[in-house]
Nucleic acid binder design. Structure first.
Lengths: 287, 287
DNA sequence: GTCGAACTCCTTATGGCGTAAGGTATTATC
DNA sequence: GATAATACCTTACGCCATAAGGAGTTCGAC
């Protein structure tokens, strides 16, 4: 219901994120720990994957581990820090960087509009991988991104992109803005799809039915919609009617990939192309 | 702490958002209402502006109005719907569309790289206005955007952008992806600044101090950072050292506009330029 | 072998939250 | 005046994070 705001003690989170395995002390009095930060983080991820972030509580996580909620506080300072750890951990699923984008590019540049090519593919692959990661763990995109508490795994994801863009020839200033734009674009589109899936699963209403009901309701409540918002109406009309999009031509009954997801996949591709073209212009400007 | 997921009953929210003033029934038995949906929404916005979304509760909103929390339920179905209304309402602060982007553009196109120009300025103005709106109400960017329950005011903001881009000559498909990319970019950058301000206000530590402490901690916890993440290290070095950026040249002691905000302003400008260049490529492709 | 310290894990309690249930006072129509 | 509808209230329930403190376990030191 509410929103994440101030992710707990940053110092504690950073220590847990970056310290290899705490201190490897030989032995110490007291009972051996039967849990571990890792196990708790994994349990938290499992809960969030199954139940969304709303279902994530210290109790539910502990329950999955057969403990009381307070047992977790021995390992983890609190819920906010646990979420930090979960967030970083899922980024470990990102495949390792392919060796693209090195400055000694072996792909020849085209003569006119033809780009170097290598970095475009690399950025596209990066974006698609991140997108699918987000869709595997939809709760991740609901964790506030304005969080300079970067963990090693998220940092590695950044490292990939920064490397690709440096390889493409961008300077530091342009690179920063580009990274920001790309990141937020992937996050935003993934969030839309993720929440659509969530809503469909929770209510049992498919995207198409939902949208149909919604626009019926809207045209009843705001019959003058097309006059008040002519451009939006035009856009809705041209998209729905299918100006050669897949909307009409696709085989009906393909519910495995619902309507909105197909549309978002197109939106993703188109938006990414716009971004890549913009980067290309910057590359030409820098080079 | 947690995250917004499934914004209450969409139908009820839509009715409240789009119905002009409910039903203007002549009269009815029972005491006169002393509150109104509008007053509640405004109180909610005031609370969220002052206290962040974490401080927003039915109790706090009611307190500001001198009522009990349950009194609000007479006017508003629940907290989720109230948040929907608050979200849409703040978008009413967006200034009305300037008459730019019409297909009969009166600004002459430049000879070579020079664009039509009109739509670039219009998009920039739109983005900057939305950015500053988000910074006036930082909690807005924490409300999940993957929410097709558009209210009239947010719809108007969209209408502006769609109009501008249609005027620039984009087709519907490209337009969708572009709108998405622009929206998420503005949201994301605003979120970063908003949360930095929040953190600074909450902890009393300035951006610069905070970052200094953070990187000290990081270099202690991960002394091999530069080897593990060479590209990120390079980016950090080139940004901080100031390759002709403002970082060094700016007058010291200008705490009114903190370090991170100046940097984010640059990032915003650069990222927007990349996006505009990408759009321009699409315009050329379409035209 | 025994003691004390360190450690894990538990139960309990506190103060928050959204909101369901039901009571009371007010104000219209009949 | 009776009746019904309405606004607002108090109370209560079941969640939540987590503070406080107790019980049991395991080590090093003697």
């Amino acid at each position: 219901m509410s929103i994440f705001a101030g992710q707990g003690d940053a110092g504690r989170s950073m220590a847990l994120l970056w310290a290899p395995r705490a201190q490897a002390t030989g032995s110490s009095p007291g009972p051996k720990p039967t849990l571990s930060v890792e196990a708790i983080v994994e349990a938290g991820i499992a809960v969030a994957d199954a139940d969304t972030l709303a279902g994530l509580s210290m109790r539910t996580v502990a329950q999955r581990l057969g403990r009381s909620s307070m047992a977790l506080y021995t390992y983890v300072p609190g819920k906010a820090e646990l979420l930090d750890l979960m967030y970083d951990r899922v980024h470990a699923e990102m495949p390792p960087a392919r060796n693209l984008g090195g400055s000694g590019g072996d792909l020849g540049g085209g003569p006119d509009g033809g780009p170097d090519g290598g970095w475009r593919e690399a950025v596209t692959a990066w974006a698609r991988e991140l997108w699918s990661l987000y869709l595997r763990h939809p709760w991740v995109v609901q964790v506030s991104y304005a969080r300079p508490v970067l963990g090693p795994n998220e940092q590695a994801v950044m490292e990939q992109l920064v490397g690709i863009l440096y390889g493409a020839g961008l300077d530091a200033g342009t690179l920063r803005g580009t990274v920001t734009a790309l990141f937020h674009f992937v996050r935003g589109t993934a969030q839309t799809v993720a929440e659509a899936r969530l809503a469909a699963a929770a209510t049992g209403v498919s995207d198409q039915e939902w949208w149909a009901g919604r626009s019926a309701l809207l045209s009843e409540l705001a019959p003058d919609f097309a006059e008040r918002f002519p451009m939006s109406a035009r856009l809705a009309g041209e998209t729905a009617a299918g100006h050669g999009d897949g909307a009409v031509q696709d085989p009906p009954g393909d519910d495995a990939v619902p309507y909105l997801e197909r549309q978002m996949d197109r939106t993703f591709t188109v938006g990414l192309t716009v971004l890549l073209d913009g980067i290309e212009a910057a590359v030409r400007g820098c080079g």
